[in-house]
């Protein structure tokens, strides 16, 4: 009897919309709460840097940075090639070959570099963070931390945050250069542009500000990835399936947030800084 009631209620679209809205609202509240906790943990860490778990920080730096370098570099390099190739074909029609280095350079440095690095980092680090914290939750390690009088946010988030905000910009710098190299190879092989000319054009078009925009964006993305990953981990349920779900949602939400942030930052940079 109750089952049938449930079925009919489930079928009501309004009810479903209501349910979804409630979930979104609750998740938003929990996100805000988590960000608040993370910020207070950051403030705490700044006040007492001695208490930061530097060993974990180094471990995560290794995990997110050194281990991720080959794949990140490769993806950025291929992105540069793809972008360069597509643009070369189109621009050659209009005789705008000379603008290829500028286009590839600016696109890679200002947008694609930070974005690709962030997406790779989401897949590697963001999901790992969510899984790690989710598993800790399942095995009551988070509860243990709380009852030991620790702030799990400070304990678990701060080392990851520091590691990510340090390594992601480094990866982005390398990614930017790899992307430009990819474009250069296309420019050289398919448009016959001398490497020296390509280099000069790139240097002429890619202003130092763009380079710093790239680094700034990557720092923002690093914070977004870490916080989203950890947040989903903390929000995970208490079994193994919940950990898997947390990992998936960490990746999806983090990519969404990255794109949202990038949209906002692109606007901010183009209107305020380079406007």
């Amino acid at each position: 009897m109750r089952r049938r009631d449930d079925m009919t209620r489930r079928n009501s679209i309004l009810l479903q919309i209501g349910d979804v809205s409630c979930v979104i609202w609750q998740e938003t509240l929990s996100l805000i709460q988590f960000i608040g906790e993370a910020v207070s943990a950051c403030a705490d860490a700044v006040r007492r840097p001695r208490k930061i778990r530097w060993r974990e920080t180094l471990f995560y730096m290794n995990m997110c940075g050194s281990d991720g370098l080959p794949i990140t570099a490769l993806i950025c390099f291929l992105t540069g090639i793809i972008l360069g190739y597509q643009c070369a074909v189109q621009m050659h029609k209009y005789g705008a070959d000379a603008f290829l280095p500028g286009l590839v350079g600016c696109s890679v440095v200002r947008e694609l570099g930070p974005m690709m690095v962030a997406i790779v980092a989401t897949g590697r680090a963001g999901s790992a963070f969510a899984a790690e914290i989710g598993t800790m939750k399942v095995s009551e390690e988070i509860d243990a931390m709380r009852t030991m009088g620790f702030l799990p946010e400070r304990f678990l988030v701060i080392p990851k945050l520091i590691a990510m905000t340090l390594t992601i910009p480094m990866l982005t710098v390398i990614g930017d250069v790899m992307g430009i190299l990819g474009g250069m190879i296309v420019g050289h092989t398919s448009l016959g542009m001398p490497v020296q000319t390509y280099y000069q054009q790139t240097v002429e078009w890619v202003a130092p500000e763009y380079f710093f925009e790239s680094i700034f964006k990557s720092v923002v993305f690093a914070v977004v990835i870490t916080l989203t990953g950890c947040w989903r981990g903390f929000r995970a349920g208490n079994d193994a399936i919940a950990v898997g779900k947390a990992t998936t949602s960490a990746v999806v939400i983090s990519i969404l947030f990255i794109i949202l942030c990038d949209t906002f930052l692109a606007h901010v940079f183009n209107t305020i800084f380079f406007g």
């Binding site: 290794n62 281990d67 480094m170 390398i174 240097v203 380079f211």
Partner: peptide, 25 residues
């Protein structure tokens, strides 16, 4: 932590960063 790998990574990125900044004048 594999400190050698981390050190290598940090060195490479710093080198690339400095080279990029210098080349942009």
């Amino acid at each position: 932590t594999n400190k050698f790998k981390l050190g290598l990574f940090v060195t490479i990125s710093l080198f690339v960063f400095i080279a990029a900044v210098l080349s942009m004048g």
